[in-house]
């Protein structure tokens, strides 16, 4: 326990010493496939990120994403999806020009729908992401990423049943981060 506290204290002090707040914006393209439904959705995605940490090490990131919708799955008038996510980022400094990273997190969101007895479906999500940062300077970097997200939707009410659906969302993102 003592050694854990010491290591944690050392890590914390290092992290705080070199950590920076960063803001980022990503644009991407996603493809959503449902597990028990013959349904698919593909469109564009945007993501706004706020994080804190060391670019070459660990960061904690909160992001707000918006997924456009060009499909009709739950109703004739399905809207965009909006989600809030929290994730831990681990980057690997390989002494290259690139900083590959791995990100894992979870989140929640919703989609507005137009069904007789439901106007909104909430969902929970788990995500994993691999990508690379391309540092331009100390304060600015570009990012390329592939993000996998598993969405578990709230039950759809058909009176006779309440049916839960799950989907997998694959997204390619391209964006930038500004660090302070």
């Amino acid at each position: 326990m003592k050694s854990f506290i010491i290591i944690f204290a050392l890590l914390s002090s290092t992290l705080f010493a070199e950590s920076k707040v960063y803001f980022g914006l990503d644009y991407g393209s996603f493809n959503e496939n449902f597990k028990s439904l013959d349904a698919e959705s593909s469109s564009e995605a945007m993501r706004l990120k706020v994080g804190y940490g060391i670019r070459e090490e660990y960061s904690v990131e909160v992001s707000f994403d918006s997924l456009n919708n060009d499909s009709k799955i739950f109703s004739n008038n399905d809207s965009k999806k909006y989600g809030l996510n929290i994730a831990v980022v681990k980057a690997f400094d390989l002494n290259m020009y690139l900083l590959p990273y791995f990100k894992a997190g979870f989140g929640a969101g919703y989609i507005n729908i137009d069904r007789e007895v439901q106007s909104k479906l909430n969902y929970g999500s788990f995500s994993a992401e691999v990508g690379t940062l391309i540092p331009i300077n100390e304060y600015f970097d570009l990012a390329l990423a592939y993000n996998y997200k598993n969405l578990s939707y709230e039950s759809v009410d058909t009176i006779a049943d309440k049916v839960k659906y799950e989907s997998n969302v694959d997204t390619f993102y391209f964006g930038f981060n500004i660090r302070y």
Binding site: E40, S42, K72, I73, S75, R115, Y165
Partner: peptide
Amino acid sequence: ACGENTKAPVIADI
């Protein structure tokens, strides 16, 4: 280009 979009609700409404 690979992505498709479902164009009619697959979960029938009441």
